[in-house]
Design a protein around this nucleic acid. Structure first.
Lengths: 130, 130
DNA sequence: TATAGGGCTTCCAGTCACTGGAAGCTCAAG
DNA sequence: CTTGAGCTTCCAGTGACTGGAAGCCCTATA
């Protein structure tokens, strides 16, 4: 398989696939003409990476997850630990975004949004609250 | 005021303040010795930037917000539009994170997390779902 | 057989918002 | 006069790609 077909079948753009090879996540073979020659296992790995990235795992997490996936002697506790850590990071991010959302939505509601210059959003940013 | 004092009083690190000058968000004067000489208005702007960034506004949003703040003829509708767009971007991000969270927490719950190798998290990443 | 096109290759640069570090100047205290 | 903190500039790195340029390869058609 050439990179185009793999990109279509995995949903990962060619640029990203080359990048993943650069950083050592996959190691496709090469044809005589210099083209990357992907096997089914490469495609499988890329799909794995796509799903892991879609769940928000970092590239470094993905690297470890892939190696665990290929390691017959892994312990599921190792996988779970990574996932739990990531889950708590997601929770932190959600909490932070919710706080922003809260403040911002109050300000947006308070702003009449017309042709006049006075604006509680700018007021808050300028430090009106204290 | 030198940069250290401004950093302390605004809560923004010196490196970041220099960066903000680099990209034209602030324009502190210079003393004869080459040190940046900050006035109260510079401090004020930096505090403004700090609050805007804490609400998640991008640097480019901040640039526009600052210019609106300094523009006596602004219309509050302009500010509100920026804030509303940002709010909806935050909502999108929250929704995306919640989806990740949902999937991931189910998987974490399903994983027994012991010494055995079989793991539904890896199973899902490998494409077991369909 | 020439050529046109699309796909493939590498390499460099840019994104966003900083952050770290090195080399060197300035200033106040002892 | 030295020490050390604080300031300066400049360069490089972060994460995870993404865009673009220059150039090779392959296939199909005229």
């Amino acid at each position: 398989m050439n990179i185009g077909e793999v990109a279509d079948r995995s949903g990962i753009p060619p640029k990203t696939i080359r990048y993943y090879e650069d950083i050592g996540l996959i190691r496709p073979q090469r044809s005589d003409n210099g083209y990357r020659a992907f096997r089914e296992t490469d495609l499988h790995k890329l799909a794995f990476l796509g799903r892991a990235r879609a769940l928000g795992f970092s590239i470094e997490d993905c690297r470890v997850l892939l190696s665990l996936y290929e390691d017959e002697t892994r312990e599921s506790a190792q996988v779970k630990a990574i996932a739990e850590e990531h889950l708590s990071a997601i929770d932190d991010k959600i909490a932070q975004l919710r706080e922003m959302r809260e403040t911002l939505s109050h300000l947006v509601d308070a702003c009449h949004g017309d042709h006049r210059p006075d604006c509680p959003i700018l007021g808050e940013l300028a430090g009106a609250t204290e």
